[in-house]
Design a protein around this nucleic acid. Structure first.
Length: 523
RNA sequence: GUCCCCGUAGCUCAAUUGGACAGAGCGGCUGACUUCUAAUCAGCAGGUUGUAGAUUCAAGUUCUACCGGGGACACCA
């Protein structure tokens, strides 16, 4: 990557001049006129930028200029022209990095309760998680996508669902569930336990969720982990004993508490409730959600994931410090990231009254399509509270920037279809030095940013950078389209430009692929 | 009351994690289709970044105090 090369040049210059080993940050200047890359190193270390600039020499650089204390670098034409060939040579692999070094990585996301269909809030974790997993894979991590199903028979939500199934309550009653309960009527008649009934119904709901995720959202999970399974496999008992043996839990007022306060959390928490007086069980009360989640995380750690990313909804925010403390307690040495996606809110007073109050993710997809939905979510930082109403989404879908990006791709395909000779892919015969127009060079500069975008995003998880890059690339391509006719009579120029748009097509498609958005050939 | 997130153009959101003149889309207003796709391009208008201080070469970004919005503070999950 060019950024790396420039970084090394400066570090060497600083070392030669001041005998100091330092880590240099390379940035993109705010304005293209300042240069292609820049560094603020002189300001930080209070040195003369001109002095540093003057001893840097490289044939990838056309010139170096100092302005406002920044050292600005301008890439040479020859270097840029060569990059087109590089992109064609690497094809889809361009931008593939190895910063992950095949580290076993898990991204856990969505993990919605199996009590009803996914809602628009779930969409956020869904698209974010899927895209992040794509990026981590692209940067050399060995990624597993995982979905955790909260289907424990003894949990409140499943028992409540059971009540609904047994017609003892209306907590979760919706038309959809009503229908399912009717279908299960025969089986439910033989069940009296709420947990069992809830579990049966939950499995049915979960099947729909899974279908929806795979077929409509086009997200493919590697693992679907059931909480109830953790119970069946005695993982809850095991972790309890494990903690007890190590004196990490204690009994107080009839309940069992875990010593999270000794590992960075603000307090200790209950993991086994006080048994009820009339409880038939004598081994103690029921485990809380925290204990099964500890068991689940222990399971993750034991499976050897060195990097774990949990993506949770805002309502789980209070759970973060607990699990972080638990990770320390269990001696996890890997990199545990817990990302909280802020709420997706409806604009007040604009929800249509005729329909049901809950708008599902499926409603949204039906209304605007998957590509628009994904783009709509991905452009916003996870920390932003999204304001949402279906009207706005529909309105935005017609004028959505995703079409702008896809249109650039379709345009390229159209030109390629009309190209008279089909031998533009024989790279060796192309004279790249003909790509001299500012719009051509500008396009190449944007193309070679792609690996940087991927790298930065793999490091800071700021996914919104991706759609932004796609829009910028489309804009620069459209400008090129305006300025430079590809299918000219001059064969050499034509083929050089065909090579350039082919490279653009590769990068556009790569970017869209990472976001899980289609790259249409015609529009 | 304590903790977390947020407050940026009329609206929805960005801003390379402390950098250069705060940028996109939508909406508004002007222009450009005999052309490789006008789902495009060129241009104009729109801002005291919630308020007040502090830190420094440099603050939308860090710190403090307020104001406002949301979320979390269970022997729920």
């Amino acid at each position: 990557m060019i950024r790396e090369e420039i970084k090394k040049l400066i570090e060497k210059a600083v070392k030669d001049l001041y005998k100091k080993e330092i880590e240099v940050e390379i940035e993109r200047p705010a304005k293209a006129t300042y240069g292609d890359y820049s560094t603020n190193i002189a300001m930080i270390f209070k040195k003369n930028p001109q002095e540093i600039a003057s001893i840097i020499k490289s044939d990838i650089l056309e010139k170096i200029k100092v302005k406002n204390g920044f050292i600005n670098f301008f890439l040479s034409k020859e270097y840029l022209q060569k990059q087109v060939d590089e992109i064609l040579k690497q094809g889809e692999k361009f931008g593939q990095l190895n910063i992950g070094k095949k580290i076993k990585t898990q991204v856990e996301f969505i993990s919605a309760n199996p009590t009803g269909p996914l809602h628009i809030g779930n969409g956020r974790g869904a698209f974010f998680g899927d895209t992040l997993a794509n990026i981590l894979k692209k940067t050399g991590y060995k990624v597993t996508r995982e979905y955790y199903i909260n289907d424990a028979k003894n949990s409140n939500q499943i028992r409540e669902l059971g009540k609904t199934a047994l017609r003892k309550g209306i907590t979760y009653l919706t038309k959809n569930l009503e229908f399912k309960i009717k279908n299960l009527e025969a089986k439910l008649k033989k069940i009296s336990d709420e947990g069992e009934a809830g579990y049966l119904l939950a499995q049915n709901v979960q099947k729909d969720i899974k279908d929806f995720i795979e077929k409509r959202l086009k997200i493919k999970f590697d693992n679907w982990i059931s909480e109830e399974d953790l119970y069946k496999k005695n993982k809850i008992d095991k972790i309890f004993n494990w903690l007890k043996d190590r004196d990490l839990i204690y009994q107080k007022a009839g309940a069992w508490w875990i010593k999270t306060s000794e590992f960075g959390d603000s307090q200790d928490w209950v993991i086994i409730r006080t048994p009820h007086q009339n409880s038939l069980e004598n081994k103690g009360g029921e485990p809380t959600y925290l204990l099964s989640d500890i068991a689940y995380h222990k399971d993750k750690f034991d499976r050897g994931f060195q990097k774990i990313i949990d993506i949770w909804g805002a309502d789980h925010q209070g759970h973060v410090s607990k699990i972080k403390a638990v990770a320390k307690m269990l001696g996890y040495k890997g990199d545990l990231n817990i990302l909280i996606s802020q709420v997706v809110r409806f604009k007040k007073g604009k929800i249509s009254k005729r329909k049901s109050q809950i708008i599902t993710l499926e409603d949204l997809i039906n209304e605007v399509g998957l590509d628009v939905a994904r783009f709509l979510y991905l452009t916003k930082s996870l920390n932003t509270q999204m304001e949402f109403d279906l009207e706005l989404a529909k309105e935005q879908s017609e004028k959505n920037p995703v079409f702008y990006v896809q249109y650039a791709h379709a345009r390229i395909c159209s030109i390629l279809r009309k190209a008279p000779s089909k031998n533009y892919w024989s790279r060796t015969s192309i004279d790249y030095s003909l790509l001299n127009h500012p719009s051509e060079l500008g396009l190449i500069k944007q193309l070679i940013r792609f690996p940087e975008i991927v790298e930065d995003t793999a490091k800071d998880y700021q996914i919104q950078r991706l759609p932004q890059y796609a829009i910028d690339l489309a804009t620069i391509f459209h400008q090129f389209y305006r300025d430079c006719k590809v299918l000219t009579k001059d064969k050499n120029l034509r083929e050089a430009r065909l090579a350039l748009i082919l490279a653009t097509k590769i990068i556009l498609k790569n970017t869209l692929n990472l976001m899980g958005i289609s790259a249409p050939k015609r529009m």
